[in-house]
């Protein structure tokens, strides 16, 4: 079995990409919370459903930002590795 520097860098990059995606927990919790609140709001005020849906999607998109950053970091590590 021969392990050279390239192998170690590849393995570490794959692990790093996996660790980076742990950040997905945050947006998951945040978007779920927003969706729950949106459901409550629709239950309380069904006639405002359109506005509530729009505001909820906007907030969720902003909450998603950190998850997207993590995804971009993971994709860079996997497919455009700067260390190789």
């Amino acid at each position: 079995m021969n392990i050279d520097a390239t192998t170690i860098i590849m393995a570490a990059s794959a692990l790093g990409a996996g660790f980076a995606m742990i950040a997905g927990i945050g947006p998951g919790i945040g978007q779920g919370y927003a969706a729950g609140k949106g459901t409550e709001a629709v239950g309380r005020q069904p006639e405002a459903q359109g506005d509530i849906l729009r505001t909820m999607l906007l907030g969720q998109a902003v909450a998603e930002t950190t998850g997207i950053y993590a995804l971009v970091v993971a994709l860079i590590l996997l497919f455009a590795n700067p260390f190789m």
């Binding site: 930002t65 997207i68 950053y69 995804l71 971009v72 994709l75």
Partner: peptide, 16 residues
């Protein structure tokens, strides 16, 4: 930056 990366990340995520 976040606006551009959001769209890019989502669509590239779908492609991948």
């Amino acid at each position: 930056v976040s606006l551009g990366f959001r769209l890019f990340g989502n669509m590239l995520g779908s492609v991948v």
